[in-house]
């Protein structure tokens, strides 16, 4: 029994010794300090000392921890091997797994409301890492590699094309940004929108459409995207299709809703109709988003 205890204590002692040795290696000999990095990486070092990461007054910044090695990992072996991109160091290059790279940032930034829901982010699940958009050495706003929307357009090329269409939000003019509607770090909303539902998001800017109206238009109340497309459209008002056909695809009834309006009902046709020319249905149904007009004549039909 005593022998067994001795063996157990010996094994335990050996295990603890290994642990202590490892800890000692990590804590002392592997970390060489930012000054050592400066010799080879002067430009990066300069940008680091000018950055927010070098503020001693902010608790937990790299300068209060291990400097460059807070993000890049211990540099002793890297230095010993004569340097080189990614040689015994985390260089944030393409070869490094997205999760590994992001985890370095999340060590500090994980404790923030911005990153609280990163685990739910579509960006995370598609292996986008922090360094795809940010670089701590950029010295630009929020350390972004480029500004929104150019940054987002780099990957979301279809959206870039849509934003060029004739009907669009003022994205190109810089009067609204992708992040005005989307949270790239993850949210509970679909498409990472900054709201619980689509209409809630739209009403943030279009508060006049919020109502509540006496005469509602059900598809409008349920989802603005039933008729509108947010990133750009060939049709006025970011509509998914053009009236009257957009409206008729739901409203077919006797008299004018089901009537075909062709070229002959345009200004140049033989029988111009105000249901066809100019704004078509919207010529009269101007309160299409909702109305508090009188029941007669047709507040329900959103004409007053």
């Amino acid at each position: 029994m005593g022998k067994r205890i001795s063996v157990f204590i010996s094994v335990l002692f050996a295990f603890l010794l290994v642990l202590i040795t490892q800890s000692s290696v990590k804590g002392d000999s592997q970390y060489i300090g930012s000054e050592a990095c400066k010799d080879c990486h002067g430009d990066y070092y300069k940008s680091f000392i000018k950055s927010i990461h070098n503020k001693r007054v902010i608790p937990g910044t790299p300068v209060n921890r291990d400097g460059c090695e807070s993000c890049h990992g211990p540099g002793a072996q890297h230095a010993e091997k004569g340097g080189g991109r990614g040689v015994a160091i985390l260089a944030f290059g393409r070869k490094v797994d997205a999760k590994t790279k992001s985890s370095m940032c999340l060590n500090c930034h994980g404790d923030s409301k911005q990153m609280a829901f990163w685990d739910m982010s579509k960006h995370r699940s598609t292996s986008i890492s922090c360094d795809n958009c940010h670089t701590v050495h950029s010295m630009k706003e929020k350390n972004l590699k480029a500004m929104d929307p150019e940054l987002c357009f780099g990957c979301h090329t279809a959206i870039k094309i849509r934003a060029n269409k004739q009907s669009r939000h003022p994205i190109k003019e810089g009067k609204t940004r992708c992040y005005a509607c989307h949270n790239p770090h993850g949210s509970f909303g679909t498409k990472m929108i900054k709201a619980d539902g689509v209409n809630e998001l739209c009403y943030k800017c279009h508060a006049e459409k919020r109502g509540p109206f006496m005469w509602q238009h059900a598809p409008v109340e349920e989802n603005c995207l039933n008729c509108h497309t947010p990133h750009g459209s060939n049709h006025l008002k970011l509509l998914t299709a053009k009236p009257p056909l957009l409206c008729q695809s739901c409203h077919d009834a006797s008299q004018h809703p089901g009537t075909i309006y062709t070229r002959l009902q345009t200004f140049q046709g033989g029988a111009p109709s105000n249901r066809m020319y100019a704004r078509s249905c919207l010529n009269c149904h101007s309160n299409i988003h909702g109305s508090v007009g009188p029941a007669f004549p047709r507040g329900r039909a959103q004409v007053r």
């Binding site: 508060a207 006049e208 004018h256 109709s273 105000n274 100019a278 704004r279 919207l282 010529n283 009269c284 101007s286 007669f296 004549p297 047709r298 039909a301 004409v303 007053r304």
Partner: peptide, 26 residues
């Protein structure tokens, strides 16, 4: 902002386009 109204009730062949005053504060 441009809006339109049918002249007759509940619609009819004629309409007027009107200039709707926008004076919103949010």
């Amino acid at each position: 902002y441009p809006i339109g109204v049918s002249l007759r009730s509940p619609g009819g062949p004629a309409l007027e386009q009107l200039a709707m005053p926008i004076d919103y504060k949010t």
